[in-house]
């Protein structure tokens, strides 16, 4: 029987690094919008007049309940929104399953379509 891993054992940054290009490669996705962490980092940089602003990425964080993935995506009009959404869910779920997610907990995917250009 597999021992449950502590949430800290899941590498959020590595998961984000893996998922970001995979998400951007989904046909119909043209870019990512800043998620909450990016917004906070940018706001902090503004307040402190520092350099800031990593390129927007898939936001991955772990809690006791499981892994939360937030994607704020811009789409083009080449496909139906639902088709892109289903692909994104599949890619994210597959990535997390490859990372042995059963030991980390539930998957919560918060996907927001910010814009869709024609």
């Amino acid at each position: 029987m597999t021992e449950p891993k502590a949430p800290e054992a899941f590498d959020e940054a590595a998961a984000s690094l893996r998922m970001t290009p995979a998400v951007l490669a989904v046909p119909g996705v043209t870019g990512l919008s800043p998620g909450l962490r990016d917004l906070v980092a940018t706001a902090a940089a503004r307040v402190m007049r520092r350099e800031g602003g990593e390129p927007p990425s898939v936001d991955v964080r772990t809690t006791r309940e499981g892994v939360h993935v937030r994607v704020d995506a811009h789409l083009d009009a080449s496909r139906s929104v639902s088709g892109v959404v289903d692909d994104l869910f599949e890619i994210i779920a597959r990535d997390l399953q490859d990372a042995d997610l059963r030991s980390v907990g539930d998957i919560d995917i918060d996907l927001r379509i910010v814009s869709r250009s024609s």
Partner: peptide, 8 residues
């Protein structure tokens, strides 16, 4: 397929 999402 039952995937919930938000859209502007």
């Amino acid at each position: 397929r039952g995937n919930a999402f938000r859209i502007s």
